[in-house]
Design a protein around this nucleic acid. Sequence first.
DNA 1: TGTACATCAGTGAACGCGCGTTCACTGATGTAC
DNA 2: TGTACATCAGTGAACGCGCGTTCACTGATGTAC
Lengths: 264, 264
Amino acid sequence: VLSPGRHDGGVTQEETARPLGVRARARVELTRAIVETARRQLAEVGPANLSLRAVARELGMVSSAVYRYVPSRDDLLTLLIVDAYDALGAAAEKAEAKVPRADLDGRFVAVAKAVRVWALEHPHEYALVYGTPVPGYAAPQDTIGPATRVPALLVGVLVDAVASGAYDPAAAVPVPPAAHRALGPLRGFVPADVPDELLVSGLASWATVFGAVSLELFGQFQNVLSDAASQREAFFTEAMRRTAAATVRRRSGEPAGLSGAAGP
Amino acid sequence: VLSPGRHDGGVTQEETARPLGVRARARVELTRAIVETARRQLAEVGPANLSLRAVARELGMVSSAVYRYVPSRDDLLTLLIVDAYDALGAAAEKAEAKVPRADLDGRFVAVAKAVRVWALEHPHEYALVYGTPVPGYAAPQDTIGPATRVPALLVGVLVDAVASGAYDPAAAVPVPPAAHRALGPLRGFVPADVPDELLVSGLASWATVFGAVSLELFGQFQNVLSDAASQREAFFTEAMRRTAAATVRRRSGEPAGLSGAAGP
DNA sequence: TGTACATCAGTGAACGCGCGTTCACTGATGTAC
DNA sequence: TGTACATCAGTGAACGCGCGTTCACTGATGTAC
């Protein structure tokens, strides 16, 4: 019943140096159980229908008891959002790490495919973080760190494209001033030798990944793509390959995915 | 109070040849008023919190009276979904029609910008159709027609790219067999001389458009892009321009947006 | 080692709210002769 | 043109449900002397 989760229930080894007593241990485990159960129910009924009372019911406790462990429904949502970002980020990182560093397109495609697979396996958790925001819920600071794990991988590919010389910054076409200014916050995380052009393309590719996953997951591919899972996967892979080729652009002269296709 | 809407309340001139009596006219107008009010409330509270009772309240009628006009909450949602698709489709068509036919990139960018502007102006209506599906609601057949208006514009651009010779089908790189098979349903609407490659790129661009809009609307660009509306618009435009250039590919030798950037 | 007190977990009832939908009924509007 | 009947709009009450959150309370576990 008390399966291990990804949370500590607010009591950490760091905070209390001495070994945990019976009560403290029970608190940690019950908090985990609550989050775990909430995640299970989230997967069943979706973010909108997730309720504290139902979680309490499944755990055999009275609804008010949950408030000993979680201050409110919103806080429970925050825990689940952080978990979802972390799980998705971990899946993407694992997939990306398996690809040789020099294979930039491969790394991008690996991230994209990992996102898609995770989303198909956890549709409601995906919807929780990338779908319509839960009404009345405002994401606190805690969520922004975990949220950046996937984008960080994509930025890594862009950085390596420049570092390895696969992309030639000197050939970059400048973006309009207003668009340049829009990139301000992102500049805080990206080295200056990655040109604006590459950032814009990178963000567009990010949009392509999540757009494709969301369109598929939210049913927009009905009557457009076949229902066969393997065919959809093949389509997605092909689309991402071409997106990668068009994003991580080669230096002049070298063959480049889509560009190469336009050649003689 | 009884403002004109986009619905007819189930009683059309075609069905009843004779001029509408007082009762029939009142029925039409009240049904319109209900849908109109529902749309207003949708814009305020979002799809999840839309309720029949609240609509009735605003119209000064008792909640059960609404059932004379709308069979159930789901049917009301369907009406709103159809309306949203139609409104978005109309906005996109209007913007696209202003661009010279030969300017393929311009047509794509016009559609993309229209989608974004409409989405920013009607965030909840956008979420209703492109966000997380409403739990427990299954979209009926009525919605698939209106849903295709925007994609149809993009397909039009692809078709014209081939027809005008801007894109050379002979140079197309074939897609893997499984991906080809995935495109089956879409093939029903697209001429055979549009190669698979172009369909894949087109769908990816579609994903880029809605991905970028959704990421922005659902808050994923926080800490990434500046908050300034004009800068965000400039970024979006630039991203879409480059996406268009990478999608509607030129025949060999001609300068092409991003490809041109890689040249000497 | 034992005792007195403080802390905490969990209970059960309640508050106040909102929802979709049904149903018997009244009274007005339309229709057929 | 007038009358009898059928249709329909809208009412008001009710059913049955679920939710988040608060609060006074009991009883068990921990802590300090």
